[in-house]
Design a protein around this nucleic acid. Structure first.
Lengths: 230, 230
DNA sequence: GCAGACATACGTACACTGTAAACGTACACT
DNA sequence: AGTGTACGTTTACAGTGTACGTATGTCTGC
């Protein structure tokens, strides 16, 4: 009996994944992360909450999409010949600028378990900058850990473990080759790092305690140098 | 009609704030942060959820208390004469050890807005180590920002703003004097930093963008040194 | 010993959350 | 014209934090 089928309806633009995600970003920007609920989001789009599920799989899916969308705002300029340091610096600051603009992002990212394509692309570009700058793969790996919280403005320790038995060896190999084509630098680093440590594919192949100490000492040494210089 | 008033009840130990908080830590340790709900917590204590509210003000209060409790686990040994670097290092690693043991802590801390006493004490001791090691107040201030995510294993950017008009100038002064007695090093740093910048009491008196760049460059310089050394 | 007072635990209720299932409608293709 | 599919709605459920009113202790003054 809800028959309000006025022919010549106001031609509302149909929902779509993109529209949902954009609305989600806008909502979080405007009213904060807690306001980003499915009902509120639907309301924002003039639609019932459950309708969203025709375009996104779940709220987690929304959050993943939102993260990816925002990460794409970080423009990754090619590294000109001005040296790795300037290049990395600009890139990190670009990321910070975007994440500062969407101040709720760090909190969201920390809840995500799998990195999104845009994050992978960002990391791959970052790794490329270090390698092009004359860093060994090993030192590049360390560098990423040290920058850690700085690269994206939060502690990441991402891809902690991809799940203990999340796939067979063949699956992993396939995934790796697929990754290699899209994220060559990342693939190269993984390959080398995994080769060094005798760990199996399980485990991300780096000792997080050791990485922490490495970064800590790098910072402490830098501070000591500043102290004696003053 | 639920009259089961058996005199000689099993003498259950009465609830208390301490008991609630300890149970909360144990629960989060055992079953993860999402399991830490008021109902579940009451269940763990053999009590209904609402009964907890006789001893804690809210769930936020529980989380604050839990953070403080865990922070107290970090033993802050006095700095022996082995140099500031060793002292700070041990202290940071001690914090990391505790936070690793309670892996849900970083997530909780990020949700807190006001630092707890135990966190203040930890920071005060840390500042003291730098000052005793010959750092200027200014460099100490920078150092804290650089260590940032390292000190406690997460990005803090704490005390963003204590609220724009959260108190009069006299209130702020009183609060400050109270703080000065308990956290002398912190008070000293605040005083000097606030004095340098011409900002009013409002605003934490440090340019977070500048601090970010300072830390970033310190790290990049350290990496460059490692690169040329290899 | 007993009455009243007070702290505390309980049950209920409300406004939220995400989302599973069933339902209706409107358009596209055969 | 018939049919299938896409998509929005409705309803419902199991959670969450917590405000309110009631019942049960336990302790104190007479």
């Amino acid at each position: 009996m809800t028959a309000k089928h006025e022919t010549g309806s106001p031609a509302r633009t149909p929902l779509s994944r993109e529209r949902v995600l954009h609305a989600a970003v806008a909502l979080a920007d405007a009213e904060g992360l807690p306001s980003l609920s499915m009902r509120r989001l639907g309301q924002e789009l003039g639609v019932e909450a459950m309708s969203l599920y025709n375009h996104v799989a779940s709220k987690d899916d929304v959050l993943d999409g939102v993260v990816d969308l925002v990460m794409q705002e970080i423009e990754v300029e090619p590294s000109d010949g001005a040296g790795w340091q300037a290049s990395v610096r600009r890139s990190v600051l670009a990321a910070r600028e975007v994440l500062t603009r969407h101040s709720w992002m760090p909190a969201v990212i920390e809840t995500r378990t799998t990195p999104t394509p845009a994050m992978m692309a960002y990391m791959d570009a970052m790794i490329g900058r270090f390698l092009a700058g004359g860093f060994s793969v090993d030192l590049t790996h360390h560098a990423l850990h040290v920058l850690g919280s700085r690269v994206l403005g939060f502690t990441q320790e991402l891809y902690d473990d991809d799940g203990p038995a999340s796939g067979s060896a063949e699956d992993a190999m396939l995934l790796f080759q697929q990754m290699a084509s899209q994220y060559p630098n990342m693939a190269r680093m993984f390959q080398e790092v995994l080769h060094d440590t005798d760990d199996a594919i399980l485990g991300d192949g780096c000792d997080s305690d050791a990485e922490f100490v490495f970064g800590l000492d790098l910072i402490l040494d830098g501070l000591e140098r500043l102290r004696t210089a003053s």
